[in-house]
């Protein structure tokens, strides 16, 4: 199995080595994600998603300094601006929890014609299914909130592939999601080369 080396972009020192996952590992991740998505009995109700995201935000607030250093060290954004990014990411998690309140539908009028008489109709919003998130290096924590935390908040299983220059912020955040109680198959991290990432994005199952 080949390895992803992560460097400090300022000093060019190696700061981490992470095993790369190949197509077989991706297939297993996809299998788990689709299984969750297709089985509505496993869906997490909105109140459970809200509670888990609130716990995540609280956990992040306890680790601002650590998250700041991880992001600044691998991404190269200066400490002060990286700290702003971490605080934004926490705010984003709280916003996602709050926005679950706004996932709602509307009444569709019936009885306007004889053919539609005796009916009541309304819409509600369902998760779209499995989300593939492919992210960038420039906001290594906050973009994961924008792409993966939103997917979880919307009720979608998500597989997130961080930029290969900045995987540690993503791995740390997803680890925290699991620590606060989000079942692992809802949010999975793919560390891969570009070919495997393309397989994720273009999966036809």
């Amino acid at each position: 199995m080949s390895t992803l080396h992560v460097f400090n972009p300022y000093t060019q020192e190696k700061i981490d080595s992470i095993p790369l996952q190949g197509p077989e590992a991706l297939e297993e991740m996809l299998r788990r994600a689709y299984a969750l998505s297709l089985d509505t009995t496993q869906a997490l109700p909105p109140h459970a998603r809200i509670r888990l995201l609130e716990k995540l935000a609280a956990a992040m607030e306890d680790r601002v300094e650590e998250l700041t250093r991880i992001a600044a060290e691998e991404g190269g954004k200066p400490y002060t601006d990286s700290r702003v990014e971490v605080l934004r990411a926490i705010n984003g998690v709280k916003t996602a929890a709050a926005e679950i309140h706004q996932l709602k539908g509307e009444q569709v009028p019936m009885g306007l014609t004889e053919a539609s008489a005796g009916r009541m109709a309304f819409t509600f919003r369902e998760p779209i299914g499995v989300v593939a998130a492919i992210s960038a290096f420039n906001h290594p924590l906050n973009l994961i909130v924008h792409q993966a935390v939103t997917a979880f908040a919307a009720g979608c299983p998500v597989i997130v592939k961080p930029a290969n220059t900045t995987p540690r912020s993503c791995i740390t955040l997803v680890g925290m999601m699991h620590e606060v109680g989000i079942p692992k198959d809802w949010v999975q991290v793919l560390i891969s080369d570009n070919d495997t990432a393309e397989r994720l994005a273009t999966d036809r199952a």
Binding site: G92, R119, T123
Partner: peptide, 23 residues
């Protein structure tokens, strides 16, 4: 944007209920 992405990641389901109660 957080809310906009969440909206995009969901889709509408329509339920039409037929019942004499709505006549």
């Amino acid at each position: 944007g957080i809310a906009y992405s969440m909206h995009e990641m969901t889709r509408p389901k329509l339920m039409v209920i037929k019942s004499p109660a709505f006549e």
